[in-house]
Structures are given as C-alpha cells and as structure tokens.
Computed example of a mutant assay.
Amino acid sequence: MAHTHRDKKKLLTRVRRIGGQVAALERALEAEGDCGDLLIQIAAAKGAMHALMMEVLAGHLSEHVVTAETEAERAKEAGAIMDLLTRYAR
C-alpha cells in the first residue's frame, strides 16, 4: 500500500490524536464524568476514526481501484471495498 507508506506521518498523527481522545474518554469514565460530556467525547472519537477511514479508503480507491490494470482487478478491488463498507456500516 504505497499510499499508506507515503502518508504514514499524517496517518500516524491522526491515529495518535484518536488515541488521545480515547484516553480522555477513559479518564472521564473513571472520574464518573457528566454523561453529556461523555457523549460528546464519544462522538468526537467516532468522527476522528471515520475521517481516518475515509482518508485511507480514498487513497486505496485512487491507487488500487482506479489504476488497476485489468477490469478483473478493478472488479476484485471494488468487491473488497464493498465487503469492507458492509462491515463498517454495521
């Protein structure tokens, strides 16, 4: 996956930010924080994870689906993405 190697620093920054959000959520739960604040933190972490997913997916589409050499390869990659999206939507 050349796109993840090329964008490694940016992707790791996103992952570390998500880790910080999850750690803050854990601390808030340990401290028995306000449920409204917890819901906001959960939504923020989910949004950050979704943004990471979309960034990696966009790179995958542009480098592995669009540029596939054959129609069979494109169909295989598209099928794999459909499987992924089905799991992600659960």
Rank of each mutant, 00 (worst) to 15 (best):
M53N: 15
A80P: 11
T4K: 14
A43E: 09
Y88V: 01
R16E: 15
H50Q: 13
M49D: 12
H64K: 02
E55F: 07
L84Q: 04
V65E: 04
G20S: 01
L57E: 04
M1N: 14
L57Q: 02
L61W: 04
A44R: 00
I81K: 03
H64V: 02
E63C: 00
H60N: 06
A78P: 01
A23D: 05
H50S: 10
A78S: 08
L29K: 10
V56C: 05
V56W: 03
A48K: 01
T70P: 00
L61E: 11
H50E: 13
G19M: 14
R6Y: 09
A51S: 15
C35S: 01
E32I: 03
M54G: 08
G59D: 04
E55L: 05
M82S: 09
A24N: 04
A89C: 07
A28D: 06
A58E: 13
A31G: 07
Q21Y: 04
R74C: 13
R16P: 15
K10M: 15
R87T: 08
R14N: 08
A68N: 07
L85M: 06
R14T: 13
A43S: 11
A58G: 09
L57A: 09
A24D: 08
T13F: 12
A75E: 15
Q21D: 10
A51Y: 09
M1D: 10
R27Q: 14
V56A: 07
H50N: 13
E73S: 07
T67D: 13
H50P: 00
L11T: 13
G36N: 08
K8W: 11
L61S: 06
A89P: 02
V65P: 01
E55M: 11
M49N: 12
L29E: 00
R90I: 11
Q21P: 06
T70F: 02
K76L: 09
V66A: 12
L84W: 01
A80R: 13
A51R: 15
T4I: 15
A43K: 09
I40W: 14
M82D: 14
T13L: 10
A44S: 14
T70I: 00
L12Q: 08
G33C: 09
G79L: 11
A78L: 04
G19P: 11
L61M: 14
T86C: 12
K8L: 14
G47N: 14
H50C: 09
A75V: 08
V22M: 06
M1I: 03
T70M: 00
L85Y: 02
E73Y: 11
L12A: 06
A72P: 13
L25C: 10
Y88P: 13
G33P: 00
K76M: 10
A28N: 07
A28L: 08
H60A: 10
T13P: 03
S62P: 09
L85S: 03
G47A: 05
A28P: 09
R90C: 06
E63Y: 05
H5P: 03
A28G: 07
H50W: 09
A43F: 00
C35I: 00
E73D: 11
